[in-house]
Amino acid sequence: MHFFWWLIWFVFLIWIFATPYAIPGQRTKSNTPLEILKKRLASGAINTEEFQRLKKTLEES
């Protein structure tokens, strides 16, 4: 029985320290400008010509 409780605590601690990246709002990676630009193109906020122009501007800087 003693081993069982140690096993539960061990699994619990592994779960706590291994999953913070999957929790919404916790340690979210920031989007790069190019990723934001791709999302805007996919959502229809900009057209392909504007996407190419903005992408070129990003690559120059």
Rank of each mutant, 00 (worst) to 15 (best):
T28W: 10
T32Y: 00
P24G: 05
S61D: 08
F10K: 01
P33Y: 07
K56G: 13
A45V: 13
P20D: 03
E59Q: 13
E60M: 06
T19S: 14
A22S: 11
F12C: 08
P33F: 05
V11R: 02
G25K: 10
E49K: 09
I46Q: 04
I16K: 01
E60K: 10
R40C: 05
L41Y: 10
P33D: 11
E49G: 07
G44F: 02
Q52G: 01
R53K: 15
W5M: 12
T19I: 06
F10Y: 05
I14Y: 12
H2E: 15
F3A: 07
L37Q: 08
I23K: 04
F3Y: 14
I23W: 15
W5E: 10
L58K: 11
P24Y: 06
M1Q: 10
F10M: 07
T57D: 14
V11F: 15
L34W: 02
I23E: 04
I36E: 13
F4I: 15
M1D: 14
M1L: 09
A45W: 00
L54N: 02
N47K: 04
T57E: 15
G44R: 00
I8A: 09
L37E: 02
T57G: 10
A18L: 13
A22H: 08
R40P: 09
K39Q: 14
I23R: 14
F3S: 09
A22F: 15
A45H: 02
E60V: 06
K29W: 11
W5S: 09
F10D: 00
S61C: 01
L34P: 00
I36D: 03
W9F: 14
G44V: 01
F51M: 08
K29D: 05
W9H: 03
G44Y: 06
M1R: 12
I23H: 11
G25P: 04
E60Y: 11
R40S: 12
W6I: 10
L34C: 00
